[in-house]
Amino acid sequence: MPSGLVALLDDIAVIARAASASIDDIAVAAGKAGSKTAGVVIDDAAVTPSYVTGLSPARELPIIWKITKGSLKNKLLILLPGAILLSEFLPQAIIWLLMLGGAFLCYEGAEKVLEKLGLAKHGATLEDEIVDPVAFENERVGGAIRTDLILSAEIMAITLAALELDVWWERGLALALVAIIVTVAVYGAVAVIVKIDDVGLYLTKQADAWKQSIGQFLLRFVPKLLTALSIIGTIAMLWVGGGIIVHGTHEVGFHALYDVIHGAEGVVAAAAGALGGVAGWLTYAALSGVVGLVLGAVIAVVLHKVLGVGAKEAH
């Protein structure tokens, strides 16, 4: 009996060590894979503040919290199970779903550009009289969560492609870990960004002159920061969406866009010398953005002009 007990304890120890090694492998894999999503994470952080711009300061954090919960649901309840199932049973479908999401990002970004150019606006905007603040807030939150779904899908897809884990549940844990960390990081940063003006207002009421100066600077800086982030968010949607389309079409056998854009990237990189890496990447990003803008504009025209979905005249 004692020998049997010792053998059992040895077996338990072996299992425990294996489990510990698996957890370590998952953590390392999640860290490596998550680092490759940095570009999309920045895009996500840039897009989100636009959804609280112009609304009551008292509603900023509650809105961000609603979007955060929606983002976690997107990643953990929708995208995570779908990613695991697709990777196991239908991996060839992933690229088509990614391109569908990319097309949506192109449409969202192009629509914002078209509106800035004075064309028809769609849905409620801050220039409109807000008759029902609750409904308007819900519309903004819904729009943010829909956009987050696409960006989250890209994050999860990049992570899944970078993972070197053969067991499905290990991939699932790594994806869940990345999803939680990214969501907390993105929306935590957004919460800080949108509350900087409150910090500035607090500092202007302090007795010390240097604190008042910093407060005045922050109050002047925040509106410019939010405007810049809104512009960056639009550019990011076009760049990421266009990039998904470029790579997706290449993966399914249509190589023209990919070859032209990466050919231009290579030429610019070679001509730029020591700055070749940066110049080449900027060329790729810019041309992907052009693809995104053209495709998004076509989708917007078809939806609003041909099909008449949600169009109203600008004023």
Rank of each mutant, 00 (worst) to 15 (best):
S288R: 02
L117I: 11
K75H: 09
E164T: 09
L149E: 02
A144I: 05
A256E: 15
P49I: 03
T68C: 03
K224C: 10
G266T: 09
D148C: 10
L151A: 11
I181S: 14
I261E: 04
I193T: 14
E60D: 06
G266Q: 15
G243F: 01
D197C: 06
A153C: 10
L55A: 14
V184P: 00
S152M: 08
H250M: 11
A120L: 08
V40D: 07
L126W: 01
D10A: 07
K75I: 00
I180N: 09
V252I: 15
Q92K: 09
V6L: 11
T283Y: 15
A46L: 15
E129L: 11
V291K: 06
L282K: 12
L9H: 01
G34W: 03
D11N: 07
L149G: 11
I299E: 07
T147L: 13
D259N: 07
G123W: 07
T68A: 13
I158E: 06
L90H: 14
A157Y: 02
I193C: 01
A157P: 01
V302H: 10
K195F: 05
Y51P: 02
S22W: 04
V301D: 05
V252Q: 08
K224M: 07
L177D: 04
G4E: 15
K36W: 02
G109D: 03
A13R: 09
V302D: 06
V199C: 14
T48Q: 13
P91W: 14
G123A: 02
A176E: 05
A13G: 14
A21H: 00
G34E: 00
D10E: 15
Y202C: 08
V199A: 01
A162K: 12
L201E: 13
V252N: 00
D43E: 05
Y284F: 15
V167A: 15
L90P: 03
A264G: 01
D25E: 12
G101H: 06
L275K: 08
E265S: 12
Y187A: 02
L126H: 05
Y284M: 07
K36A: 14
R140G: 04
Y284H: 14
F104E: 10
V222M: 03
A30N: 07
E137M: 08
L8E: 05
T125V: 10
T234R: 10
V294Y: 03
H315E: 10
A185L: 15
A300K: 12
V309I: 12
L293F: 13
K66Q: 10
T234H: 07
L9G: 04
A311S: 06
G123T: 02
L90Y: 13
A311L: 05
I67K: 04
A189W: 02
A228W: 10
V252Y: 01
A46C: 15
D198S: 14
